[in-house]
Amino acid sequence: MAEVIGQLLVTGVLLGLMYGVIAVCIGIIYNATQIINFAQGEFVMIGGVAAWVLITELHAPLWLAGVAAVAIGAAMGLIIERLVINTARRFRPPLLTYIFLTFGVSIILSNLTMFAFGTNPLIFDPFLGRAPIVFEKISTSSQYALLLPLCLVLLAGLTFFFAYTRYGKSMRAAAVNEFGAKIVGIDVGVLSMMAFALSGAVSALVGFFLTPITTTSYSIGLAFTLKGFAAAITGGLGDFRGAVVGGLIIGIVESLGAGLVSSQFQDAITFLFVIVMLVVLPKGIFASMVEERDRL
């Protein structure tokens, strides 16, 4: 029994890190714009696809594939911000409209990917080989384990960026009070562009790391978005520690629920837990200082 629970916990933590990093990407955009980007999973998917093209089709080295994925993710973020978000912003629609705009964007991106790369899953080899990491009777793939350092670096980098750099601080300011930020000379449009580019880049990097584990294809985006969104909410929207903790909680509940209670009820257990968490902590674990500016 101990080995079963140990295995389930390890799996849960790794799954949770996966949801957590996506929740962090959602948080970057939310912090600067209060928008929940429903195309976030598609950014992850595109990062994986870009890396796949370089590795499999162009036989590029791994690091170059990673760099290219990040560049394409940032470019995608920028394009979508300029074409869609900025266009919509002229009329200041309610935040609810942005969710459906980005949902429309996700349909477009996923179908374009389908036409360009077909319906087959794309995959490349794990960075450190196929051999699993085994401890006693508990094991996992080495690629999964890479999520841990990735997550720590991301958290450290983003915390530094938002706490100490001028742009990071401006983004937080704009999120708290857009009007006030404008008065002190912060260009909100530029911040929004930066947030989408940064989030796109980080998502694509996550996609680069995840593809050997999950594979990537046109249809994987929405599942990532939903779990990432749930993790971000459970942890407290906009808080990066919260995003990772929220992800970990969801991952662990999902793993224990499927392994110990019932795999048939896996999703019900996970989301019932999310609801209970929200009823107890209506603003998430790390309740954000930032009040939601606008009702949905």
């Binding site: 079963v4 295995q7 799996t11 790794l14 996992t140 999950t214 249809s219 110990l260 795999s263 048939q264």
Partner: peptide, 20 residues
């Protein structure tokens, strides 16, 4: 007898239950 979703990417929990 364990179930998963077609969008699942990690069936380790189900397989762990099966292993035991």
């Amino acid at each position: 007898s364990e179930a998963f979703k077609s969008t699942s990417t990690d069936m380790t929990p189900q397989l762990t239950a099966i292993r035991s």
